[in-house]
């Protein structure tokens, strides 16, 4: 995945069964962002792989004051890349569950 300066990782072990997974997001390189992020650390949240979109979560993070609105796309892309990797891994490891 492209280095967006925003890191997203699983915050729990993925067993491929739950559609809602815990993710953790933090800024690795603030220089890649257009606005100044709130200096708050790692943000943990639950993401539903079946019902939600990365754009929804990114928008809620902007509205909650974690990021400037000009960075909504980069935050969404960071989440989208991680979600795609999780879904790819699920299909590969647990194809029968998907």
């Amino acid at each position: 995945a492209e280095d967006t300066g925003v890191r997203v990782e699983l915050a729990e072990e993925d067993h491929g069964r739950k559609s809602a997974i815990a993710l953790r997001l933090w800024v690795e390189d603030p220089k890649k962002l257009k606005g100044k992020p709130k200096d708050s650390g790692a943000i943990e949240f639950t993401f539903d792989l079946e019902r939600e979109t990365p754009e929804d979560v990114a928008q809620e993070m902007i509205e909650s004051g974690f990021f400037h609105e000009s960075d909504v796309k980069i935050v969404a892309k960071s989440i989208r890349d991680r979600v795609a990797l999780i879904q790819w891994r699920r299909k590969r490891i647990w194809p029968a569950l998907q």
Binding site: R7, W26, E28, D29, S40, G41, A42, I43, E44, F45, T46, V57, E60, M61, E63, S64, G65, F66
Partner: peptide, 27 residues
């Protein structure tokens, strides 16, 4: 370490914790 919780009006909960030093990139 301290945890902060932010709840968005749509109901999503964001839990904020310090990033461990080992996870920060060297610049």
């Amino acid at each position: 370490s301290s945890l902060t919780q932010v709840v968005h009006s749509a109901g999503r909960r964001f839990i904020v914790s310090p990033v461990p030093e080992s996870r920060l990139r060297e610049s």
